[in-house]
Nucleic acid binder design. Structure first.
Lengths: 119, 119
DNA sequence: ACATAATATAGAAATATCTTTATATTGTCA
DNA sequence: TGACAATATAAAGATATTTCTATATTATGT
């Protein structure tokens, strides 16, 4: 039962839910998620760590990025996200997230991040 | 989105999850739930109030009992519980809960409650 | 109407969660 | 190899959650 409680707890936070729905589109590096959520990078790191620990997502190093993706072996999560995506078809925040992700790349987000940090 | 976050938050607590799966069997009064969970009655009341507020369950007075049941109009919750029930087919705690609920009644639980309070 | 049965609310303690700023780690490229 | 890019960890504050005990509410049967 604990596994399922953990899944529901993960899904009950807005930022984590948005991350999962973004990862359903494609694998993402941390700075792409940052570009969308506008919360501290360390907060994103913490959310990702939590979801990795309970098997919802996986990571892999690729160049100087760490790429996160949905866990392959979690059919329950996949079914849940599939259902959620339909229910949230008209959710403005989710729609916006999708637009940003489909119009950007790791390279662009990395550049934007650098600019923000130089200000 | 808030609606779904609330549903997931409700499901992320073990006691609330157990209550929902019991209510999936049949409507229950508070003292039947108490018989199963072994936590303070006021705690159960709080959990029920929370779930009622977000539309997961409904209540109705019947004699001196308040009978709680799953909300009729929440198809997302029903689908979730259906899926969960299958996943938790072999969960010992859930199995035990089901046994207790299928072997007791409001009347029996009310009596047991009275005994406990007289000790 | 009163006593009691069933449930709800108030208040408080312990713990958990989310977030930020500051600092550390790690790998890559010049 | 040294500087920097990308991400992670630590520490700390604010807030939320879960639970309990004690008390209140409300309806029912006598």
């Amino acid at each position: 039962m604990k596994d399922y409680l953990n899944i529901f707890k993960a899904l009950s936070d807005e930022n984590r839910l948005r991350i999962l729905l973004m990862l359903k589109m494609r694998p993402l590096c941390v700075c792409e998620i940052y570009e969308v959520l506008n919360i501290a990078l360390s907060t994103i790191s913490a959310h990702l760590k939590l979801m990795k620990n309970i098997g919802l997502i996986e990571d892999e190093k690729e160049g100087r990025w760490v790429i996160y993706r949905l866990g392959k072996d979690n059919s329950f999560l996949h079914e849940l996200l599939e259902a959620l995506e339909k229910k949230l078809q008209n959710d403005q925040k989710i729609l916006n997230d999708r637009i940003i992700i489909s119009h950007t790349t790791r390279e662009i987000c990395a550049l934007k991040l650098k600019e923000k940090q130089n200000i």
